[in-house]
Amino acid sequence: MKTLQPILPENPIIAPVPLHWTRLLKRKYNQSELLSQSLSRIGKFEHAPSLLKRTKRTPPLFGLDREERELWLQNAISFNSKMELQTRGRHIVLVDDVMTTGATLSAATEACLKHDVASVRVVFLARAAKND
């Protein structure tokens, strides 16, 4: 928590990057949601696990470059319109487990910024190494 303190805004809403329901069914859990839940609990922040929804089923993106990932992720993540009043003018902190190219976090950020939020920040547990 100490490491995140400098980037966390006051009174944020913490939300995980969503999995498509078919992947969630197969995995039985969303690791990003578990991380966001822990961050919310430790920091006593509001947790919004249903803020975003993965509306388009994408294949595993492992091995794809940034452009290919961005193509697959176009319109793949949507904002829960039932949460617009709750999030208006608020700071959103998106949580993901691993960042590879940033394409998924960008798609999730764009989904939030289309609504009246104050800002979107992202945190992730690990950064995948580039295989150059």
Rank of each mutant, 00 (worst) to 15 (best):
K2H: 11
K2D: 13
T3C: 01
L4W: 00
P6N: 14
P6V: 14
P6R: 15
E10S: 05
P12R: 08
P12D: 05
I13P: 12
A15L: 07
A15K: 07
P16C: 07
P16M: 11
P18V: 11
P18A: 13
H20C: 10
W21K: 13
L24G: 02
L25A: 05
K26V: 08
R27E: 13
K28Q: 15
N30M: 11
S32G: 12
S32H: 11
L34I: 09
L35N: 01
L35H: 00
L39D: 01
S40Y: 06
R41T: 14
R41I: 11
I42H: 10
G43T: 04
G43P: 07
E46S: 10
A48I: 00
P49K: 09
S50K: 14
S50I: 08
R54P: 05
R54N: 10
R54W: 12
R57T: 10
R57P: 04
R57C: 11
R57Q: 13
T58H: 06
P59M: 02
P60H: 07
P60M: 07
L61N: 00
L61W: 00
F62R: 03
G63N: 10
D65S: 06
D65C: 05
R66I: 10
R66A: 15
R66K: 14
R66L: 11
E67A: 15
R69H: 04
L71S: 03
W72D: 03
A76K: 10
I77R: 07
F79K: 06
F79S: 07
N80K: 08
N80E: 11
S81Q: 14
K82Y: 06
K82R: 15
E84G: 04
Q86I: 08
Q86L: 14
T87W: 03
G89F: 07
G89T: 10
R90P: 02
R90G: 07
H91E: 14
H91S: 15
I92Y: 12
V93H: 03
V93C: 06
L94E: 00
V95K: 04
V95S: 02
D96S: 02
D97A: 00
V98P: 02
M99A: 02
T101I: 01
G102T: 03
A103E: 02
T104M: 00
L105F: 04
S106K: 13
S106H: 13
A108I: 04
T109R: 12
A111P: 08
A111W: 10
C112G: 07
C112Y: 11
L113W: 12
H115I: 14
H115R: 12
H115D: 12
D116G: 09
D116R: 13
V117S: 05
V117F: 03
A118L: 05
A118F: 02
A118N: 03
A118P: 00
A118V: 00
V120N: 04
V120G: 06
V123Y: 08
L125C: 12
A126Q: 06
A126D: 02
R127G: 05
R127F: 11
A129G: 08
A129W: 09
A129Q: 13
